[in-house]
Design a protein around this nucleic acid. Structure first.
Length: 902
RNA sequence: GGGCGGUUAGCUCAGUUGGCUAGAGCGCAGCGUUGACAUCGCUGAGGUCACUGGUUCGAGUCCAGUACCGCCCACCA
């Protein structure tokens, strides 16, 4: 796809001109706006010479159902991408689809089972055909789902781990590792998933507590001829079905109880086999009965003991989890049934000492949920230590930074204890292992392209390994393989590698992040795949539990989009996300997002709607502006500055919160209200400020809420064209804070006016003055008298007071029959003949005096402390002195009011 | 067994170099105007920041310990 730096104005322009409907309808806006973005090629404006910003999209769920966690990932990444794009960086966001081998295989196999057939009935080719059908459908669904979320990813460039380019990258990596001696084939104990019928790696095994039993079984001690005696050793086991696979009994060498037994033989119950008692330090003296049955074929610890002592390995399991002929009379039984039968037999043979209830952790397959059976099998492995060492170094020396930092420890701990990685899977969908076996000479050939003859004997009688590679082997190549590796001249690779940000959930550090770091360093000559790993938390149900479809606590992201709008969903997800911390998603949160989108719509509509033909919308010299204009511009720029800083530190929720609060609580609730009064009095000067603030806020919010901001902004641009000529907000420039407009004096003045208004409203509410009634009021302005005078019309409207007298000192305000409120910045006084009760007033003021006295006392105590004045920084001490002064004058004012009450 | 996180208003959570008179949203109570918005406005109530001790002029924030909740890792048969 070719991308143009500019956009087509016709495609982007809103259909209805600048008229905005009274109600905000997210759905129609979303569809139209997204289509505009897509057609215009705005998703990847090429900006030669700009700083590259690259972000990698983690794989969505290929089952085709959008999980809310992925919606969060998309929202966060899209926010970062849009932000960088607006700042002029050259962004590349590679949306990716992983081939999710085990999950997809399981789905197709289930479909087949429902038809009563297995994959072997239809053969590999037909099986893969069905997989592709399913995967292609899923991929287009995924793209569609991202559109609905507003993701600005360029789906034409989607990276898919199963395409041809990736196959080449995978094979090359495999061969390189093999040639370097880092890939080997070995018979070892692996985690077998009897349902999916494949090996899985250590991290794909999830341990869950299962209530089971501890069977204490008597192993008779044999005499010299190998016949059982009356003596026996008691051995506790949780897996009696593996007894037929026992090839030794082990005790700790330091254990005095069994010292005399070492070297003697015991009889394995129900088999009659005699095995030797060995001493090994792996045996815990405290554990079980102190003696351990050694089953090298079906237990990792035992496997290691077996290796140390050269023990025989017996495999008693078929690949479907049933017992095989090595289990003797139990052959053919399912493992559970085998367990029951063997326990019953042991008991009737009088060899069961006791049974205790016991809860222990049992490994389950992450994908199929089946209980994992350790068994010995021939598999391909990656020798991991040589890959792990540089990956540890890259994090330790800061070339890769985790956000939040604490996950570096998690990562390092795992990496430092890593074990070899079993990469072969006995499934069909996936990258097939690029190894061909020669049937003539037994040599093997590793091929980047399919070999036609054996490398060793040159015979043509070769067949490819039936197995496929672990999904994460190819996913681990993502950061470079999706950019064009192994073609080292690929434009994207040169320009965008290393990437800047890897953003994902912390649950995927080991699976994916660690593998990407290891394999990328290996393939890319030690250059890190990304500079930051930003880890968001998990999204939980409203009650804090893991979302569960069966419990009905799962939030369906697309359902939420339908109900509340895409911007609302993104607001809810982004406002709750802080690095590494889980969040809860509830209807209330979604409503808050919807409400804010509505507020944006209405406040903007109103502000823009006041603009008339011929209005001058350029901002005048700040010095000539009234205080409220200077105040709102000052606040705008402060927030702009904060948002800039926060977003750069991945603190998106705080950035969003500050922008929201500014727009709603300050701009909409105060500035617009004040501006209204001026405009009604035919003063057009607030219009440039209104338009300017709306414009800037929309730009700041666009990364978070792209649809509603784009829609409003295009109406805005129709009356106030973008200075850079941008035709859409998505390609408009991100605002830079203008610190020259930060005006603390204006802020203080306007805040004083806010205080006056609030004080009057407060008294009105307290005295139950009818909301619609106009009453007389005095504002004693003090230092803020100037701005209060300038804003007297606004104060009248906002507090519904008329006539309003703004005076400088209390002496100019009446003191008889008035309800007063003494503030830090001045006073207000409302004459209330009918409602006035001196006794009530005395009590009210008395309370305030007590409070003010407490405050004054507190500050005085602090300032009287020599340690404080000597050690606290000057600005802190000065602030305390200022506070004391205002508190004292307020206290004086209150006391005076009380005196006047008599 | 090891490690990590959490404990702040009725609920969900902010509070990132210690200076706080501790904030927000929702909920609650009261009142509803002025043609942007009832998906709204105004006003208000509500917190000994889990507990104990320490460092400091000063601790929600730093340190040590305790309790409870959650998560991750680990070959206790």
């Amino acid at each position: 796809m070719t991308t143009e730096p500019t956009t087509d104005a016709n495609e982007m322009a809103p259909a209805e001109g600048i008229e905005m409907s009274t109600a905000y309808h997210p759905r129609s806006v979303e569809q139209r706006v997204y289509a505009g973005w897509e057609q215009s090629g705005a998703f990847r404006p090429s900006r030669p010479g700009a700083t590259p910003f690259t972000i990698i999209q983690p794989p969505p769920n290929l089952t085709g159902e959008l999980h809310v966690g992925h919606a969060l990932t998309t929202a966060v990444e899209d926010a970062l991408v849009r932000w960088h794009r607006m700042k002029g960086d050259d962004t590349l966001w590679l949306p990716g689809v992983d081939h999710a081998a085990i999950a997809v295989n399981a789905i197709i196999e289930r479909q087949l089972r429902e038809q009563g057939i297995s994959r072997h009935d239809i053969g590999r080719e037909e099986f893969l055909k069905r997989v592709w059908e399913f995967v292609n459908t899923s991929r287009s669904r995924i793209a569609e789902q991202h559109r609905r979320l507003g993701a600005s990813a360029d789906w034409e460039r989607e990276a898919f781990t199963m395409d041809e380019a990736r196959e080449r990258a995978v094979r090359l990596t495999f061969k390189k590792l093999y040639d370097d001696g880092l890939i080997y084939r070995a018979e070892r104990l692996i985690n077998w998933d009897p349902v999916s019928q494949t090996a899985v790696s250590d991290i794909e095994v999830e341990y869950e507590d299962v209530e089971s039993a501890f069977w204490h079984v008597r192993y008779p001690i044999a005499d010299d001829e190998g016949n059982p005696t009356d003596r026996y050793v008691v051995i506790a086991t949780t897996r009696p079905e593996t007894i037929p696979a026992d090839t030794a009994v082990a005790v700790n060498p330091e254990d005095d109880r069994f010292r005399d037994l070492v070297g003697r033989k015991v009889i394995v119950p129900m088999t009659g086999r005699a095995v030797t008692v060995i001493a090994d330090e792996a045996v815990d003296i405290e554990g079980g009965s102190g003696a351990l049955k050694v089953t090298p074929g079906h237990d990792p610890v035992d496997f290691e003991i077996g290796e140390r002592h050269g023990l025989e390995i017996i495999n008693i399991l078929n690949l479907d989890g049933t017992l095989n002929e090595n289990a003797g009379q139990y052959a053919g039984l399912d493992r559970d049934e085998g367990r029951r039968r063997i326990v019953a037999d042991i008991e009737s043979a009088g060899l069961l000492e006791k049974t205790e209830p016991y809860t222990h952790a049992v490994g389950h397959s992450e994908r199929s949920g089946a209980i994992i059976e350790p068994l010995v099998s021939l598999q391909w492995w990656v020798k991991i230590q040589p890959l792990a060492d540089p990956a540890i170094e890259a994090v330790k020396d800061g070339r890769i930074k985790f956000v939040p930092e604490r996950f570096e420890r998690t990562y390092l701990h795992w990496m430092e204890n890593i074990r070899d990685w079993c990469i072969s899977r006995q499934i069909w969908w996936g990258h097939r292992i690029p190894v061909w076996y020669c049937e003539d000479c037994e040599a093997l050939t590793v091929g980047i392209t399919d070999p036609t003859f054996c490398e060793s004997c040159e015979g043509s009688n070769i067949t490819q390994d039936e197995d496929t590679l672990d999904t994460w082997f190819s996913s681990g190549l993502w950061p470079h393989s999706t950019l064009g590796w192994p073609d080292e001249d690929a434009e994207d690779l040169k320009r965008f590698y290393p990437t800047q940000v890897m953003e994902t959930g912390y649950d995927i550090i080991f699976f994916w992040v660690a593998r990407m770091i290891m394999l990328s360093l290996y393939n890319m000559d030690g250059v890190v795949p990304f500079e930051h790993v930003y880890l968001h938390g998990l999204v939980r149900a409203a009650d804090g539990s893991k979302m569960s479809k069966s419990k009905g606590t799962a939030v369906d992201p697309l359902g939420a989009v339908d109900q509340y709008g895409s911007d609302a969903l993104r607001f809810a997800l982004l406002s709750g996300t802080s690095p590494g911390n889980d969040q809860r998603l509830s209807d209330e949160r979604l409503e808050a997002g919807r409400n804010f989108a509505n507020k944006l719509w209405n406040a903007s509509r109103f502000a823009l709607g006041m603009v008339e033909e011929g209005d001058d919308l350029s901002l005048p010299d700040p010095a000539t502006m009234p205080v409220e204009d200077r105040w709102v511009l000052s606040r705008l720029n402060q927030v702009n500055q904060n948002v800039e800083r926060l977003t750069g530190r991945f603190e998106l929720a705080e950035a969003l919160r500050q922008t929201r609060d500014f727009f709603w609580d300050e701009f909409a609730d105060w500035y617009i209200e004040v501006a209204k009064v001026r405009v009604r009095a035919d003063d057009r000067t607030p219009l440039p400020v209104l338009v300017h603030v709306v414009d800037r806020t929309l730009r700041m919010l666009h990364p978070f809420m792209p649809f509603v901001t784009e829609e409003i902004w295009q109406r805005l641009a129709a009356i106030a064209p973008d200075p850079d000529g941008a035709e859409a907000l998505i390609v408009a420039r991100y605002p830079e804070a203008n610190t020259a407009l930060i005006d603390e004096a204006a802020e203080a003045s306007f805040e004083a006016v806010q205080e006056f208004v609030r004080a009057i409203r407060n008294i009105r509410a307290e005295k139950r003055v009818d909301a619609g009634r106009w009453i007389e009021a005095y504002v004693v302005g003090g230092d803020a008298v100037e701005s209060a005078t300038a804003l007297s019309d606004a104060i009248e409207q906002l507090a519904r007071v008329r006539p309003l007298h703004v005076v400088a000192t209390t002496a100019e305000a009446p003191s008889e029959g008035v309800v007063t409120s003494v503030l830090a910045v001045g006073q207000v006084a409302l004459p209330m003949a009918g409602l006035f009760d001196p006794a009530v007033e005395r009590e009210r003021i008395g309370k305030q005096i007590a409070e003010a006295e407490r405050e004054v006392g507190g500050i005085e105590g602090k300032l009287g402390n020599e340690q404080f004045t000597a050690r606290a920084p000057a600005d802190v001490a000065q602030r305390e002195r200022d506070r004391l002064e205002t508190a004292q004058s307020r206290l004086a004012g209150l006391r005076q009011s009380l005196t006047e009450l008599g």
